[in-house]
């Protein structure tokens, strides 16, 4: 059982809590405490907006055992509107074909069952095509 590793990351995983560099203003996700842009310490907490664009995506057809029950699934690199890029699954695709440049928004979903059905349920961010709204 790995509990603390997931528990420790809950804020990042559930709602994209990252950091902002107080020196150069860069948004950081995942949080890394040292700004990769200016090299200064960056520990100011900032929740990212959660919208972005698909930079690249792929359908995983040979899944690791932890993800076998979800196979096949789509993983993407997402360029967040806040600046950083992250790796996340695309979800709620239905019959929609993803494409490079697709607009997506963050949702919190089940990432996997840790261990087995008796273990922890790991929740975290995924992205889906921006929901079409009649009023906006």
């Amino acid at each position: 059982m790995d509990i603390s590793r997931h528990w420790r990351n809950r804020k990042q995983r559930y709602r994209l809590v990252g950091e902002v560099c107080p020196h150069c203003g860069a948004k950081l996700f995942p949080p890394r405490d040292v700004c990769p842009h200016c090299g200064m310490e960056a520990k100011t907490v900032e929740t990212l907006v959660g919208t972005g664009t698909v930079y690249a995506f792929t359908t995983v057809r040979q899944a690791p055992s932890d993800f076998a029950e979800q196979s096949p699934y789509v993983v993407a690199l997402i360029s967040l509107d806040d600046g950083p890029m992250l790796t996340a699954q695309l979800t709620d695709l239905g019959d929609v074909e993803p494409y490079v440049g697709m607009r997506v928004e963050m949702v919190t979903r089940k990432l996997r069952n840790a261990d087995d059905e008796r273990g922890l349920i790991i929740y975290g961010y995924k992205f889906r095509p921006v929901l079409e709204r009649a009023l906006a």
Binding site: V60, P64, T87, Q89, L111, G124
Partner: peptide
């Protein structure tokens, strides 16, 4: 934490 946990291989 940020790649493999999202199903990346």
């Amino acid at each position: 934490d940020y790649e493999a946990e999202h199903g990346l291989t």
